[in-house]
Simulated scan of single mutants.
Amino acid sequence: MKERYYLVREDILPEAIIKTMQVKQLLTTGDVKTVHEAVEQVGLSRSAFYKYKDGIHLINHLERERIVTISIDLVHHAGMLSKVLSLVAGLGGNVLTMHQSIPLQGVANVVISVEISRISEELNEMLEDIKGISGVKRVHMIGQG
């Protein structure tokens, strides 16, 4: 199913959506340290926050963010994932989500979503740098948004 987006005036949004955005802003500005503190402050349940947090963004934030999802097959050796994450961070990428499978036949698949609006080189160069890490078997970009 293709994702669809709508531009909606704040005054017609359900209260839980508005409070979710307030929680995100509190966390972003550092006014609170934890999700627990933020949801208590705005009067929202944690489950509602986690349900809506990835689906609501300020328009000006969406304009700046570029997010890619990358699938990487890594040899199962200590420190492999750390090398990849360090390289991405060193280039200015911000890992938003990460999922690692259990290694099968000595190889684990890792899928990371990376915010790349501040990376110091072209996306293809970053992918090539990841491929160049010893122990990386395959790098494939799944999606870009």
Rank of each mutant, 00 (worst) to 15 (best):
L87V: 04
S82N: 06
A108T: 15
S101N: 01
E65W: 05
N94C: 02
V42T: 10
V107T: 15
E63I: 09
T69Y: 05
I70W: 05
L81F: 05
T69M: 13
L87Q: 00
L44Y: 14
Q105E: 07
K83E: 11
V75Q: 09
E63C: 08
R64K: 09
L58R: 13
V84E: 00
G93N: 06
I67C: 10
I112R: 07
A108N: 14
L104A: 10
S117P: 11
V88W: 04
I56N: 09
I59Y: 08
I59F: 14
S71H: 07
S45T: 08
H77T: 09
A89P: 00
I56Y: 10
Y50V: 11
I112F: 02
H76N: 15
M80N: 11
A48T: 07
L87P: 04
I56G: 07
N94T: 04
L85H: 09
V114Q: 04
G106D: 02
D54R: 06
R64C: 00
V88R: 12
Q100A: 08
H99Y: 09
H77N: 12
K53V: 08
F49W: 05
T69H: 05
I116F: 15
H61G: 00
I70V: 15
V75W: 09
T97W: 03
Y50P: 07
R64P: 01
V68S: 12
T69I: 06
H77E: 13
N94S: 05
K51F: 14
K53W: 03
G92D: 13
L87W: 06
Q105S: 02
L81E: 10
E115N: 13
N94I: 03
L58V: 00
G79L: 06
T97A: 14
V84S: 06
S113C: 04
D54H: 06
L81R: 05
P103H: 12
R64W: 02
V42Y: 00
G90C: 12
A89Y: 06
Q100L: 00
A78T: 11
V84G: 06
S117L: 12
E115D: 11
D73L: 13
L96K: 12
R46V: 12
G93F: 08
E65L: 14
L87S: 07
V110G: 03
I116Q: 13
N109I: 10
I67E: 13
V114H: 06
